[in-house]
Amino acid sequence: MTKEEEAQYGLELATKRQEHSDLNAAIDTLTESHVADRMLLQRLKKRKLALKDRIVELENILLPDIIA
């Protein structure tokens, strides 16, 4: 992996982590307010799960398991 690719993956990882954190805060706020519709919450949670999957994928690319 080149330094450029590594930097690109690192930037994407940071962006996805921030988006995941923002979604988590939004979901918590909407849940506490009791005014959000269930479909919106489901969509947000599904997006959050997809982000988490991509975060794990990027972490595996950047920090591969080393079998000793």
Rank of each mutant, 00 (worst) to 15 (best):
E4I: 13
S21Q: 08
Q8F: 13
E12G: 02
L40N: 06
S33I: 13
Q18E: 10
K46W: 02
T29F: 14
Q8Y: 12
I67F: 11
E57C: 00
E4S: 14
A50W: 02
I61R: 15
E57A: 10
S21E: 02
R43W: 07
K48C: 02
L49Y: 08
Q8G: 07
V35A: 01
L11T: 10
I61T: 14
L23V: 10
D65P: 10
L44F: 10
K46H: 04
L23A: 05
T31M: 07
L23E: 12
R54Q: 07
E4C: 04
K52I: 03
L44T: 01
E6R: 14
D28R: 08
D28V: 08
I66W: 12
E6S: 07
I27R: 02
V56F: 03
E32M: 00
N24R: 15
L23P: 11
R38Y: 06
V35C: 04
L13G: 10
V56R: 03
L41T: 02
A50S: 08
L44W: 14
D53N: 08
Q18P: 00
T31F: 12
Q42H: 04
E5V: 10
A25C: 01
R43Q: 14
Q42P: 00
K48H: 01
E12T: 04
Q42F: 05
N60H: 07
A68Y: 07
V35W: 01
A26S: 02
E32A: 10
Q8V: 15
L58V: 03
L49A: 11
Q42Y: 08
T15P: 00
K52P: 05
K46A: 09
Y9W: 10
A36Q: 03
K52A: 08
I27G: 05
E4Q: 15
K16D: 10
D22T: 11
A7W: 04
I61H: 13
R54S: 06
I66C: 14
T29Q: 14
S21C: 01
E4V: 15
K48T: 00
D37H: 03
D28G: 09
